[in-house]
Design a protein around this nucleic acid. Structure first.
Length: 424
RNA sequence: GUGGCCGUAGCUCAGUAGGUUAGAGCGCCGGGUUGUGGUCCCGGAGGUCGGGGGUUCGACUCCCCUCGGUCACCCCA
């Protein structure tokens, strides 16, 4: 293979049409849903001061090993990092601007994590998400979770399951973690080496182990539900009741743990059953009642989710949903006359709001017609020497059995529009 | 960071128990007489077989290194 001089860096890729257009449509479906639910768009920087992300958890790989960090040219240099997720940025923005709560925000964009790529995992990846800050009303949880569910539905996905759990608050969580750690230590000998390491860093995360060996131990582990404080249990019950009221199907997943340390109380995950890869979580989120404060802001509880665009699209492929489609071309302009006729014609048709493409390089009529066909255009507008001489255009219906006729330039838009109206 | 598998034309792949000019399909370009696509037919361009080193009379085929891809662990969306 002739080796290209450069290629996209490891874990990144170029998104070409029509796939790129499909992603854009996905975001616009999400944007529409978020807008209609009272969420406004937050566009935050792609990089932040390192400290913004260090609150995500000292035991967390995302912070300790996977950050793309760098220094700028300041004096002294500032220590910055490409954002590995967006919740921290949203909280930082909240702490910085002090908007009136509840602050309901949606976002989309690239995020960066230095990991070994694998199915559904890239170093640069896209997420869409929402966050509601400044309220711990269980109905805020219900609204956020419901929005996620409706989004998958809007894409035509059917095989997405919602898993929910509560991690408890600052009172109940520590006692659970202590009990869990004690239990895990009692079965230390049965755990994998990896799980033992995880146990020392963050006992909760052991519940996430995918190793066969750990499964029996995990299955018998104590569950958070038994350790919830009265207030947390009540909050969780209200969230569940709310979900029931809007007909949102969910499963209680007592051992569901989120990756980032800031989560409290409600946690949830969207699992794509169509995906048989290791990464079948197409989205996840939860409550993070202390994060804003940790970033120097006022006490402000929050809840949100992030949905992985790449994984969602993989799941769509597996389900046959939300297919990619090339940008629609309605009219293809064929020009064998030379001069500016084709340019003028294209411009006129586009000004009329039509989707128009054309050929270049003065190729043969046959070649241009072939292009017209491949473009998927319903109509070909042909300008050759004859047409040019009489100020006319040949309008050809490209559909099987479609005919053609020569019309005056001034009538082209009307004739084409009429043909297209009969197209559907 | 650890491990498995893979790396031949733009794409999807075939090929070689090591031996003359490396193949197919799709795509691309041209043509099938007199300006017109979708089917069909003919022709053509395009590959130093990821890169480097080694073994050999000779390697795309064997060995080593390296880069890249892919999948899994870890981590997470």
């Amino acid at each position: 293979m002739a080796q290209p001089l450069f290629r996209a860096p490891v874990g990144t890729r170029d998104l070409l049409p029509p796939e790129s257009g499909r992603r854009r449509r996905l975001v616009s479906v999400f944007a529409d849903l978020a807008d209609r639910s009272g969420f406004g768009l937050l566009e935050s920087p792609i990089f932040e001061e390192l400290g913004v992300f260090q609150r995500l958890g000292a035991s967390n790989d995302v912070v300790t090993k996977e950050l793309f960090e760098f220094f700028d040219k300041g004096d002294p240099p500032r220590h910055l990092a490409l954002r590995p997720e967006l919740t921290a940025s949203v909280c930082r923005a909240f702490a910085e601007h002090r908007p009136t709560p509840p602050w309901k925000i949606w976002y989309s964009g690239p995020q960066f994590r230095y990991e070994r790529p694998q199915a559904g995992r890239y170093r640069q990846f896209d997420q869409v998400g929402v966050e509601t800050l400044g309220t711990d009303d269980p109905h805020a949880d219900v609204e956020v979770i419901g929005l996620g569910l409706r989004f998958y539905e809007a894409l035509g996905m059917k095989q997405v399951r919602l898993l929910v759990n509560s991690l408890g608050d600052s009172e109940s969580r520590p006692s659970y973690v202590a009990a869990l750690a004690e239990y895990l230590r009692s079965r230390h000998g049965e755990l994998s080496d990896q799980a033992r390491l995880t146990l020392e860093r963050n006992p909760l995360r052991v519940l996430d182990s995918k190793r066969e060996q750990d499964q029996p131990v995990i299955a018998a582990a104590p569950v958070m539900a038994d350790f919830l404080s009265g207030a947390s249990a009540e909050h969780f019950a209200a969230v569940r009741a709310g979900l029931d009221s809007v007909g949102a199907a969910y499963e209680i997943s007592p051992r569901l743990v989120r990756g980032l340390d800031y989560y409290t109380r409600t946690t949830f995950e969207f699992a794509a059953d169509a995906l048989h890869t290791a990464q079948n979580a197409v989205g996840g989120g939860g409550r993070y009642d202390g994060l804003v404060e940790e970033l120097g802001g006022p006490p402000a509880p929050g809840i949100g989710f992030a949905l992985g665009v790449d994984r969602i699209l993989m799941a769509c492929d597996a389900e046959g949903a939300f297919a990619a489609a090339p940008a629609p071309v309605e009219v293809f302009v064929v020009d064998t006359a030379g001069g500016h006729s084709a340019a003028v014609l294209c411009d006129r048709l586009r000004q009329a709001g039509l989707g128009v493409d054309r050929a270049f390089d003065g190729r043969s009529m046959k070649a241009q017609m072939k292009r017209a066909d491949r473009s998927g255009a319903t109509v070909a507008a042909i300008v050759g020497p004859d047409e040019q001489a009489e100020g006319a255009v040949t309008v050809r219906d490209m559909r099987p059995g479609g005919g053609q006729r020569r019309v005056a330039e001034a009538e082209v838009v009307a004739v084409v529009t009429e043909l297209l109206e009969g197209a559907d």
